[in-house]
């Protein structure tokens, strides 16, 4: 039952509908249904946020350590350096996401040009 388990045109779309659409819109609809009856600062909401953050961070870790495509041809050291320097630039230069992206990409491209 993986994404490419069934060789038909509709299976990937059904997979996206169930694992993607239903798994997200169900929460949005529940939010409308509850409408204003929970506080943003309750303890349960903190847990909801930390689990979501750890999940997305896990994907990000995998994308850096085990990338696919052309990024897989770069060295792990270069990818870690690009991510770390970009992140530090974000922290130190006004917390701008675009600054982090620009610095990170510059480090990656410079590293590839220098053959690191």
């Amino acid at each position: 039952m993986t994404f490419d388990a069934i060789e038909t045109w509709w299976w990937p779309f059904l997979f996206i509908l169930i694992a993607g659409w239903l798994a997200t819109d169900a929460w949005r609809f529940l939010g409308v249904y509850l409408g204003g009856r929970i506080s943003e600062d309750s303890d349960l909401i903190v847990l909801v946020r930390t689990v979501a953050t750890a999940l997305v961070a896990a994907v990000i870790g995998n994308l850096i350590v085990f990338p696919s495509g052309a990024l897989a041809d770069t060295s792990l050291a270069l990818r870690l350096a690009a991510a770390l320097i970009g992140f530090l630039a974000y922290l130190w230069i006004g917390r701008k996401v675009l600054v982090g992206i620009a610095v990170s990409e510059a480090v990656l491209i410079a590293g590839m040009v220098l053959g690191l």
């Binding site: 993986t2 694992a19 798994a23 949005r28 939010g31």
Partner: peptide, 25 residues
């Protein structure tokens, strides 16, 4: 698999619920 993927996506999206709760009023 489909259930594991759906479960992971659902866990990552619970946070949409309190956002909607705050926006609706």
């Amino acid at each position: 698999s489909l259930p594991a993927a759906a479960f992971a996506v659902a866990l990552s999206s619970v946070r949409l619920m309190p956002m909607v709760v705050a926006l609706v009023p």
